[in-house]
Write a protein that binds this DNA or RNA. Structure first.
Lengths: 105, 105
DNA sequence: TTTATTGTTTGACAACGATCCAACAGTGCG
DNA sequence: CGCACTGTTGGATCGTTGTCAAACAATAAA
C-alpha cells in the first residue's frame, strides 16, 4: 500500500491539467471517470482499446497532473477524479471541459 | 491579403484547443489577448521573451486550433481571440481557463 | 525603386510523447 | 508455497514539439 505521489491541490498547474486533458484517450478516460465514479486501470485499457501499459502511462500522466486520485484496492487500483480539488483550484474548469467533451461526442 | 486558414466554428476540436492552451507561452499570450483585445505577433515575441519565429509558430498553433483570428493590418498582423466562436462551441470553457490563468499568476 | 519593418518558412537540434511488447512486481486465492 | 491477476517499468520505435537562427516574402514609407 505504497503512497502514490499526488500533487497537493495548491501545486496543481493549469498548463499541466490542460495538457493532461488534451490527449483524446485521456479525455475520454476522464469523461468516463466522471460518469462512472471509479474505474480500474484495466477497465480503461479495455474500453479504450489501448494496451494496458499505455493505459497505465496515461493514468500516471493524469495523476501527476493532479486530475485523478489512485486508491489501492486489493490487487487492483481504483482511479477517481479529483473533482473537489480541481474545483477548488480552478473553479468551473472541469465542468466546462466535461460538458464540452459531451458536446463533441 | 491572403486568406489565412481558420477552422470553422463547428470544426474546432476540444482536444486541440486544450493542447493549444497547455503551453505556458501560448496560455500567457491568450491571457494577454483577452485583456488587450488585439496584439501583433511582435508584441507577443517581445513581451514573452521568445524569438519572433517562435511567436509566429505559437500563433499558428493557436490559429489552427481555432483559438485566435488573424487579421492583416498593413504590414503587421493583428491577433484576436475567437471568444464568440469558442463560447458557442464550448460554453464557459474559455472563461474558466482565463480565470484559472489569472488565479495562478 | 530602394529601404525598413513585420512575419513566415526552413533547417537543425534536443526533448518529449504515445504506443506496443516483454519482463517484472505486488497481491490475493487455492 | 505456487498460481493467477493487475498494474508498472524498461526498451524500442516513431512521430511531434519548442526553440533559435538565418533566409525569405510581403508591405509600407522615403
Amino acid at each position: 500500500m505504497r503512497a502514490l505521489p499526488h500533487p497537493a491541490t495548491d501545486d496543481i498547474e493549469l498548463t499541466e491539467v490542460l495538457r493532461a486533458l488534451s490527449d483524446p484517450v485521456r479525455l475520454e478516460a476522464v469523461a468516463r471517470l466522471a460518469a462512472a465514479g471509479e474505474m480500474t486501470c484495466g477497465d480503461v485499457g479495455r474500453n479504450l482499446g489501448v494496451h494496458k501499459s499505455t493505459a497505465s502511462h496515461h493514468f500516471r500522466a493524469l495523476r501527476e497532473a493532479g486530475v485523478v486520485m489512485t486508491k489501492q484496492d486489493g490487487r487492483q487500483k481504483l482511479m477517481s477524479l479529483r473533482r473537489d480539488d480541481l474545483d477548488a483550484r480552478f473553479p468551473g474548469l472541469l465542468d466546462s471541459v466535461l460538458s464540452a467533451a459531451h458536446a463533441t461526442v
